[in-house]
């Protein structure tokens, strides 16, 4: 397995691309690069999997019953004052 000559830069680029904050040019450059760079291709898959993991496995807590109601009540108090 060969190393990537510029792995650190590629990783930064990958992050920005997955965050959807990149440019089409940078994206093209990156995807052309990972076609021929095994470590970067692996990093790409891993990073994507981690993002997916975070989104799918971290559960949301349900909002407690009556929270909006109690906020509305408090707001009403301010309005009356």
């Amino acid at each position: 397995m060969t190393n990537c000559p510029d792995e650190e830069r590629c990783l930064h680029l990958l992050e920005v691309i997955l965050d959807d904050e990149s440019t089409p040019e940078a994206e093209q450059e990156y995807f052309e690069h990972i076609d021929q760079c095994w470590p970067c291709y692996q990093n790409y898959n891993l990073e994507k999997a981690i993002r997916k993991l975070i989104k799918s496995k971290i559960e949301n807590k349900p909002v407690p019953d009556g929270l909006i109601k109690s906020i509305k009540r408090e707001i009403e108090k301010i309005t009356i004052e």
Partner: peptide, 25 residues
Amino acid sequence: DKTITTDLRVDSLKDMMGDEVTNAL
């Protein structure tokens, strides 16, 4: 600041529990 290029692999993530991911965060 340097990315830790770990030996973490994609298949190792599959069986990870919600609690573990939550704790990691």
